[in-house]
């Protein structure tokens, strides 16, 4: 076992799959010699050569089209979108093309593409770098959306994403890249997509969350514990499709739930989780399911970012509302 940051675990996952499968290609803006702007592809071009790990011209739609075209030639592309705020430039390739290839060809072709991309607030980026756009992606049928919250999960989930025969959007929260290290096996392992992880067990309230908010929620759970409340924290890990079994089992146990996301409130993942709980477990509920989210604005400029982003205090406050309902 090695101590790894999340970004090291991500690099390790790509290295593992580049070794395992000659059809895996890693490409994007500055991923070659430079190793990516966050060093996610550090050393990969040196190890696997320019044929497998390569820089592209600076055009996201071109990168997406390249990925779809390479899929038609039997490759397994792992393109990087330098920041997920740039996804608007490539959304046709994702939502209009890769996701529809199976249906268009009656199952003859598939697009086993893993679009990797950094996102997430708290690191004072310029505009269009930090937005949580997973809700937008989750409304694209045919793609999976994966968001790891730990180094261990990141490696296992990324290997599974690359091996998946359908398109996967793999979103890496920038604040988590180097915020902590964790024991990560050097050998290969997978974590199934669509499977949540109970990061902390509890009996009084279910906190359903993902990404950086997992850590805010865990911190909140610790504080709640001091006040005598036992909170269960569920890390969705895959936000599309969500792991309905784990969510419902937890809600049936606790009878109370809140959903925490960094994204804006309207539509999105949290709203979907609430709706699914409503559909499937309403009679188990002792209180309405509430959400902790950012406000319904575009992502805040750095000056206002720290207040705009939800934090553990918001989680505690909302959890108490349902606990005392």
């Amino acid at each position: 076992m090695a101590q790894m940051t999340m970004i090291q675990a991500i690099t390790d996952a790509m290295r593992t799959e580049l070794r395992n499968d000659p059809n895996v290609l890693v490409f994007g803006e500055d991923v070659g010699v430079n190793g990516g702007v966050f060093r996610a592809t550090e050393g990969l071009q040196k190890e696997f050569g320019e044929d497998r790990v390569f820089d592209t011209p600076l055009a996201e739609s071109g990168i997406g089209g390249l990925a779809v075209g390479l899929s038609l030639q039997g490759f397994r592309p792992v393109p990087e979108i330098q920041f997920f705020g740039f996804v608007f430039e490539v959304i046709d390739s994702i939502s209009g093309q890769a996701s529809r290839l199976r249906y268009r060809t009656g199952g003859k072709y598939n697009a086993p593409v893993t679009f990797r991309s950094p996102f997430g607030g708290g690191v004072h980026t310029p505009d269009m770098h930090a937005d949580s756009l997973e809700g937008l992606m989750a409304q694209t049928p045919g793609v999976k959306v994966v968001i790891p919250s730990t180094p261990y999960d990141a490696k296992g989930l990324l290997i599974s994403s690359i091996r998946d025969n359908d398109p996967v959007i793999f979103l890496e929260h920038m604040k988590l890249y180097r915020s902590f290290r964790q024991e990560v096996p050097e050998e290969e392992y997978t974590i199934p997509l669509g499977k949540a992880d109970v990061k902390r067990e509890g009996t009084d309230v279910s906190i359903i969350t993902y990404g950086a908010m997992v850590h805010e929620s865990l911190k909140a759970a610790e504080e709640l514990e001091k006040e005598g409340f036992s909170a269960e924290v569920i890390d969705l890990r895959t936000v599309s499709p969500i792991d309905i079994e784990t969510i419902i089992a937890s809600v049936e146990k606790t009878g109370r739930a809140i959903v925490v996301q960094e994204a804006q409130k309207q539509a999105g993942i949290a709203a979907n989780v609430v709706a699914e709980i409503n559909d499937r477990a309403i009679l188990s509920l002792e209180a309405p399911v509430l959400r902790v989210t950012a406000p319904d604005t575009v992502f805040a400029f750095p000056q206002a970012e720290s207040v705009w982003l939800p934090n553990y205090k918001d989680v505690i406050e909302t959890a108490k509302k349902v606990l005392t309902f």
Partner: peptide
């Protein structure tokens, strides 16, 4: 062949990918 493209231009970026794939193969 690919199936006829409806989005104007999408086939152009994909062609770069198919051609690059051929080159790699």
């Amino acid at each position: 062949i690919a199936i006829p493209q409806i989005i104007i231009g999408a086939q152009y970026v994909q062609t770069a990918g198919v051609a690059l794939g051929m080159k790699k193969r």
